[in-house]
Each structure stands twice: as C-alpha cells, then as structure tokens.
Simulated scan of single mutants.
Amino acid sequence: MEIRTNHRRSRELRFQPREGDTYSDVVDHSISLGPSIKSARDVGIALSRENAELRRRPIRAIIETPDYRLPRDLRTWSVDYLGHRAKTGRIYNDRTLCLASDLLGDDVVKLRASSYFDFLCSNLLAPLDIWQAGRESPVLRGRDLILDVEGRLISFRRSRLANLIGVSTLAFTTSGQLLLVAQTPENIGSPGLLAPSGSGALEPKDVPRRMADWTIQQIVINGAERELREECHLKASEILGSSVVGHGRWISRGAMPEFCTATLLNITSDQMREKTLRRVERSFVHDVIPVSLAPVRFWDPGRPLEILPRKHRDAVSWPLALALTCLAECINDKSWPLRKDLLDRLEG
C-alpha cells in the first residue's frame, strides 16, 4: 500500500526547472560580495573578501557535529525527487563534507559531514519549483531555499541546505598547457561541458590525519588533488604542488560553495596524452584535453572565458569559469606562492 501511495503521489508531482531564471536580481543584490561569473549554462559570484583572506593566511577548520540532516519540509519531497534524479543520470550516496559557516566573521570555518543524497534533496531543489496536480501555485518555490525575504543570498551559517563543498583545480603540465576535462552527459556536475582538470566534492577522507593541519586551504587542496588523480589518472609523484586561488557561490546550484586551486604537474603534455582513462571514470569523463592559454598579459578576471582558446569558450562549466577568474587575479599577486613557477611555464 505504501509503494502504491508513493507511486500515485509521484505521478501528481512535477519538478519544474526554471530554465529562464538568470538570477539577475540576485546578482544585483550581491554586488558587495564580489563580481558575477557566467558560464555556458550557469551563474554565480566570486567572493572577493573571502578570496583575499584565503590567499593571505591559513584559516583554521573544524568538523562540527552532528551531521547535516534534511529539514522536515525537504524530507517530504526527498523520495520523489531522488526517483526523479535517478531517471536523468547516475547518482550515488557517498559521504561528503559541507560548509556550515562563513569564511569571515568566525574564528574557524565549520564543516560537517552529510550524504550526497541530502545535497541532491536540498541544494539541487533550488533551481526547481515543485508543482502538485490541482494546485494553482507551487508547493515549493526553489528560490525560497537560497534567498531571504529581501531577496539576498542566505549566509552559510543560516542556510538550511546541505551546502556540499565543491572543489576543483587547474593543472598545468611542464609544457605550460592547462588540462581540461570533457565531461560525459551522465555527469551530474556539468553534463557535457568542459570542467577543470579535476573537480568534485570534498569527502571526509580529505581531512588531514593531524589536527594541526586542519585548515580549509589544506583540506580543499587534498580534495582537489584527489579528484585530479582520479579523473586524469595521475600518480601522486606526478603532482608537484597546489595552491588555493579562490572561492565562490554557484547560484544556479543552490548557491553551493565552490573552491578552486591551481596545480603544477611533473609531466609534459605529450606524456599526458599517452595516458588512458581509468575504467571507473569513463562514465563521467569523456576526454582530457591539454590546451594552450592566451598570453598572460591579456588575462582579465572580468572576462575569464577569453583566457581559453575560442573553440572551447561555448562549453565552459561554471567551476571552470570561476577557477579562471580567480587564477587571473592570483597571477597579478606577487605574494601568491605558485606565481613565479607558473609564469615560467606559461612564458617559457
């Protein structure tokens, strides 16, 4: 009887994407937070003050308990929405790390564990409205999950969403080329688009064993390098080092937090082309493409897509656009640790 009831209710529900929502009003209200960034399908903002702090000093992080749990009103739609998502792509329920506080205003950054399903049923409901047969208005307005009564983004500290922490990296070969990952249509993150060299979500295993190393920067670097090794089939010895370049909020995906880094590799572009994808990654990664970027003197944080070759600009994912924006800012910051070595590669 329960199965029949759920099946009947699922036929009465409609998860309606707001494809025409450009979030222009949200961007206007967020001018004080940082510049807006647009990609092929999505929009978000780079957090300027937070990014300056990320590059200036180590920021202590702690793991908060208890784990994140879906609020009762969101649990109402969780089973139906998971069934809906299962029809559109591969889903899994690994353990993840989420952001429970803001980077500024607190002594430490608070993280907490959650399941990937909780992220799907919270942040990924925000781009949707839920309609029920016979109702004249939505039973859930997705925008209400990320905006306050004045139409401004709700802070991470006050948010009721999981706010899974996205991480990515821009990896450069010794030849000075950037590795781009062409994602498959089955990839939930940015299906069919070009992503950074490694991108995904933070997991509990990315937290260092020593509590003395619990900074948000080190945890983010650990997660980004793990994703890089997995997606580009790299060994740990082929990674020389990484540095955090920035942080933003991906408005089109429930205003989730997204961190980006840059990585220097110990292999040439030709050696990278000889590698084959790991079998387990073939459902998510179609190809890894080394590309040459525009000369550094033309890099403009306000026009990140122009850093890439023209033929790739129409297929850029939002994490890639964010990472290029932040990298263009870092390359002009003489205190940024990777600046000199990266310039040598790019201009060599």
Rank of each mutant, 00 (worst) to 15 (best):
W336Q: 09
R8M: 13
L70C: 11
A126T: 01
G223T: 01
R4D: 13
V43N: 06
P185H: 11
Y116T: 07
P295N: 09
L104T: 11
K275G: 07
S137V: 10
A86P: 02
F156W: 09
R9G: 03
D213Q: 04
V26A: 07
L234P: 03
Y23L: 06
I45P: 02
A86F: 00
T76A: 14
R209Q: 13
P17W: 03
G34L: 10
L265M: 05
N163F: 08
K275E: 04
G200D: 01
L193R: 05
A126P: 03
E203K: 13
R313F: 07
S252V: 01
L178C: 06
N93W: 05
L202P: 01
N123Q: 08
Q183G: 09
G142F: 00
R69S: 15
D300G: 03
S242V: 03
L342H: 02
D42L: 04
G302D: 13
T174S: 14
Q271M: 14
W77N: 04
D106H: 15
P301T: 02
L161C: 11
D287L: 08
F119S: 11
L170K: 04
W318G: 04
I31M: 15
R14G: 03
I251T: 02
A201Q: 14
G34M: 12
N266L: 11
D106N: 14
Y81M: 06
K235M: 14
S48M: 08
L277H: 08
H247P: 00
T65A: 11
E136W: 00
L140E: 08
E203R: 15
M272T: 00
D107E: 15
R297W: 06
L322F: 12
D107L: 14
N332K: 13
L178G: 03
T76C: 07
F119E: 10
S269F: 02
G223N: 01
S292G: 11
R226M: 06
I219W: 07
D21F: 06
F259T: 01
R310V: 09
P304F: 09
L33D: 12
S168M: 05
D106W: 07
